[in-house]
Amino acid sequence: MQFSLWLALVGAGTLISFTPGAGAIFTMSNSLNSGFRRSIWGILGQQLALVIHIVIVALGVGVLVSNSPLIFNIIRYAGAAYLVYLGIRQFLHKPDLDKEKVDDRRDEPALSMFQRGVWVNLLNPKAIVFFLAFMPQFIRPDQPLLQQYVVLTATVLAIDIMVMWFFFALAARSFQRFTHNEHGQKVLNRIFGCLFVAVGILLAVIH
């Protein structure tokens, strides 16, 4: 991949990663509940989902999904339902100032956070359609394809990890002062719960 083309990829990938969405909300929620450092596990789960999306598009399955309203809608509504479920669970979560229970919540197994991250991004067929439109702009068919896909994937993942961890996860730390009392916890739970539900509804209704 030419350096100028790679720079364009970096610019486009950065703008895309900074666009608020389910992944950003999920990352901020994890940072609040489990801490900045441990939020990386959810972020890594999201990256695995992105790799799967890229592979799907590279293999041509993305064309099938984008051209089949039934398949697309099944995945779209499943993803929307999962986000709404996460939002309702967050909204109804009772404030808890018991230090031991708070520590338990902060000690959620890394695998659990990783799996939730995978599902948040995987159940988003729009990502497949997006990569279907995005990737061809940076792939040159007259050059070795595998090398180009590796560079594209590594670049997109590196950018997304940095933006999610060093921007959205860090941004959540500014809300931590609200977690020290019951009212603050309730407000944050309802805010993030509503955000999850809102993104889920948008995913379901916006075509």
Rank of each mutant, 00 (worst) to 15 (best):
V156W: 03
F175E: 02
S174Q: 04
F178Y: 09
F130M: 13
F167I: 13
A110P: 04
N124I: 07
S174R: 03
R177G: 15
L123P: 03
L145Q: 00
P109W: 10
Q147S: 08
W119L: 14
A133S: 14
A172P: 14
S174I: 04
Y149W: 08
L157H: 02
M164K: 11
V163Q: 01
Q176T: 15
F175S: 10
R177D: 09
E108Q: 12
A169W: 11
R140F: 11
H180R: 08
L152Y: 12
H180T: 13
V120T: 15
V151R: 00
A110K: 14
F134V: 06
A158S: 15
F131G: 06
F131P: 10
P144W: 00
Q137P: 08
R116I: 11
V129S: 05
V118T: 12
L122E: 06
V150G: 04
A133E: 03
K126P: 14
A133L: 10
D142Q: 14
D142L: 05
D142A: 12
F131H: 04
F178D: 02
A158D: 05
S112D: 10
P125G: 08
M164G: 11
D142K: 02
I139H: 00
L146P: 00
A169E: 09
M162Y: 09
M135G: 06
K126F: 15
T155M: 07
A127G: 09
P144E: 01
Q147M: 10
M162H: 06
M113L: 15
V163D: 04
L145Y: 02
N124D: 14
M164H: 13
A110R: 10
A172K: 08
T153C: 10
L132D: 05
L122R: 02
Y149N: 01
L146Q: 02
V156R: 02
Q143K: 10
D142P: 13
A158K: 07
M164P: 14
Q143N: 09
R173I: 00
M162T: 14
M113H: 13
W119S: 07
F131L: 10
Q143W: 06
F138A: 01
S174W: 07
N121T: 15
Q176H: 09
Q115K: 14
M164I: 07
M164T: 13
L111T: 13
F131C: 05
G117A: 06
Q148S: 05
M135A: 11
F167K: 00
L145E: 01
E108L: 15
A169S: 15
A169R: 05
F138W: 00
W165G: 08
L122D: 07
Q176L: 12
V150T: 04
F114C: 02
F178R: 01
V129N: 02
Q147I: 06
V151N: 01
Q143P: 12
